[in-house]
Design a binder for these strands. Structure first.
Lengths: 190, 190
DNA sequence: GGCTCGAAAGGACAAATGTCCTCAATGCTT
DNA sequence: AAGCATTGAGGACATTTGTCCTTTCGAGCC
């Protein structure tokens, strides 16, 4: 809970009072390994703060290939933001790759908060802008980094993910086949 | 001007009166071919609506390689949104690839509009959310489409760009070398 | 212990892409 | 018009990555 407060404050200045008012709108949710927080074609009705655990966000494209978009780790938010904003069916799957504990708010409650005050409008915009920046960063990585560089970044920034996720998932995150991941690992171990 | 009104209305419901109030904050700017609207390391202080013309948004990464992020075409906005939001130096270049006419608003004026009313807060959030979705779409394309598919999409959605941009720029947009673009074109022409 | 199963590593060859280069076409300058 | 620079197409070969397959290792089970 403390971590969540810290996280919110990092997005936008918020008083303890405002945080206390906010937290009332959130509920706890526990997922077991392999449980889904969201599936493709379902409208995403929630945004969640990850208290503990890891989720994998992935697409399945029209050639039935799986692409891992990201691994969502502790003390971050997870949602299919696009599906949530538009209240349209999600293209993303969000699956726990280990037992996971979440703090969840649903669409109606967030809209309520937005309509309550200018402060909440500001938080909403700051949040959208923040999500934009995360996504731009992601696109920049996709554009500029090789699979090898992405692997090294993962090793540096989310080393636990390399333990928790399987080879298939990591390879699809890097945008290469398992065979190439195997070659990358061999190269790096030298 | 009419096109700009149509564009704004497509983002968020806005009355003619509100539009009239808004447009006062915008100024006209003309660029010649090869002029820069923004350069790397400069803080982006403007958002612009493209009345006429085309801009190329590109990065130069630490290996001195150029990557074209997108081609910004008529009746769309252009900015380095990240740099604009954070008021930090831009990683993007925005260069006109033909003579271009813009409607520009600067950071202070937009903040003024935001602080004026809840309506403007809502517009600000809606705009950030919209930018997010565009960026997510872009990331999804990067993840799921081959260079050949991206070329076909460009051909379908922005065919003029293929006339206006040179081979180098298009190849860097597709994420391949000129040689591969040449092969793609040959393949498609059959 | 021996067995089976699933996951990861890696061998062999094919396909795709990059590098380096040449050539042809076009437009600009003098 | 001739000369020059810029741009795009594509040949030849090297490198990278993918496909398909076999092998190895370890966990769980009888």
């Amino acid at each position: 809970m403390d971590e969540f407060k810290k996280f919110l404050k990092s997005i936008v200045p918020i008083s303890d009072k405002e945080f206390a008012d906010t937290i009332l709108y959130f509920t706890e949710l526990n997922l077991e390994k392999r449980d889904y927080f969201l599936k493709q074609d379902i409208v995403c009705r929630h945004i969640a703060f990850i208290v503990k655990g890891t989720l994998r966000a992935y697409y399945i494209n029209d050639k039935a290939e799986e692409t891992t978009a990201c691994f969502c780790t502790e003390n971050n938010l997870t949602t299919s933001y696009k599906s949530f904003i538009l209240q349209q069916p999600s293209t993303l799957f969000l699956q726990a790759i280990e037992d996971t504990q979440l703090l969840v708010i649903d669409y109606e409650n967030l809209q309520n908060l937005y309509s309550k005050s200018t402060v909440w409008q500001t938080i909403g915009r700051a949040f959208a802008e923040r999500e934009y920046i995360v996504m731009e960063q992601y696109a920049s990585v996709l554009n500029n980094e090789t699979a090898r560089e992405k692997y090294l970044r993962l090793l540096k920034e989310q080393p636990n993910v390399l333990q928790k996720a399987n080879v298939e998932d990591i390879a699809s995150y890097l945008g290469v086949t398992r065979r190439t991941l195997s070659r990358i690992r061999k190269e790096i171990s030298k």
